[in-house]
């Protein structure tokens, strides 16, 4: 971490200046606990590594897995290059059943998995924040109707809803059209199925914030309800949002992988990590372990570091999270 080198500087006697944003950030609780927590540092480093892999996949990848002219069936199921007998130098992680370079495919797959995870959570957060703010701020009948809705939605597990909805869409659209829409469908389904998580947490914090004096002050000043909700209450509910978002992205990535594994997610021609594992599973019995194991490890490490970061954030920010 380069950030660690800068820590001694903050201990030096400072000249009287207006503190910059960076200097103010260095005094915060979150930064102080970050520089003490080795696990959080490692997790963040690995996570940033993933983000860079995803963002620059087309630059890093030696091959383009979406380009059929670069696929050669003669290259299929080659083991990683450290296998002396069979491996080839140019495919360092081996190739999959269609002769695609596994390393390039994993880079593109990580990109797809992260995109779906983040977009789905953005959708969840948007719906959940709006519903939670309205339910918490307005209270009364609006509140009880919206929360009843959330209860019913939560009582059906996300996985169940997602499997049923996607399966029916696939059956009614036909597989080909479905494959073109798969990414949008995954984002929509995972995004819509999990909004109550946000709505309940936000509602709980809004109820706590609403009683405070600054809200009364804002109301006395004659500010509109929407302004009070979004400009005054929302910024004070950010820490629970941050904590659940980290964990929710991890969950969304797992859901996407599971759905793709069932054949309801990303198609093999545009594989996410889950569909890559799924396509490799057919070959694991014939000894081609790397098509399943390597993307599996990549997926687990990604989800693991996000969960570790989420745990760390929860301990540091210690928000009042809604308990089930």
């Amino acid at each position: 971490m380069t950030n660690q080198n800068q820590t001694p500087a903050s201990k030096m006697p400072e000249v009287e200046t207006v503190p910059t944003a960076w200097q103010r950030f260095k005094d915060t609780h979150i930064w102080n606990s970050f520089i003490k927590d080795r696990v959080a540092q490692i997790s963040l480093t690995i996570f940033m590594g993933y983000v860079i892999m995803a963002l620059f996949a087309p630059v890093i990848a030696p091959f383009d897995p979406y380009d059929p002219t670069q696929m050669d069936i003669m290259n299929s199921e080659l083991p990683p290059s450290w296998d002396e007998e069979m491996g080839e130098e140019q495919f360092w992680l081996g190739t999959d059943a269609q002769g695609r370079d596994l390393w390039s495919t994993i880079l593109y797959g990580t990109r797809i998995s992260l995109t779906i995870g983040i977009c789905a959570v953005l959708l969840q957060a948007t719906i959940g924040i709006i519903v939670g703010l309205i339910a918490g701020y307005r209270g009364g009948r609006v509140d009880s109707i919206l929360m009843r809705f959330a209860d019913v939605q939560l009582s059906f597990s996300t996985m169940m809803v997602a499997i049923v909805v996607l399966a029916i869409f696939q059956a009614s659209f036909g597989t080909e059209l479905y494959q073109d829409l798969a990414m949008v469908m995954l984002i929509l389904v995972i995004g819509i199925a999990e909004w109550p998580q946000y709505a309940r947490t936000i509602r709980a914090s809004v109820l706590a914030e609403k009683k405070k004096e600054y809200i009364d002050a804002a109301r006395v000043m004659g500010l509109g309800q929407i302004r009070i909700m979004f400009r005054h209450i929302l910024p004070n509910t950010l820490s629970p949002i941050l904590v659940i978002s980290t964990v929710q992205v991890a969950n969304a990535i797992i859901s996407e992988a599971s759905l793709s594994f069932l054949g309801l997610g990303m198609p093999v021609s545009q594989p996410s990590l889950g569909s890559l594992i799924s396509s490799g599973f057919e070959y694991i019995f014939s000894g081609a372990w790397w098509i399943t194991v390597i993307p599996g490890v990549v997926l687990v490490v990604l989800v693991l570091v996000m969960n570790l970061l989420g745990d760390w954030l929860r301990d540091v920010l210690n928000p009042k999270l809604y308990k089930g």
Binding site: A257, F261, I284, V303
Partner: peptide, 22 residues
Amino acid sequence: SIIGISVPVFLTAIGLIYLFSI
């Protein structure tokens, strides 16, 4: 337990099959 949360159920299943069956 945090590793357990991070491993999707189908990967656990594949891992178990690979280790104990194959």
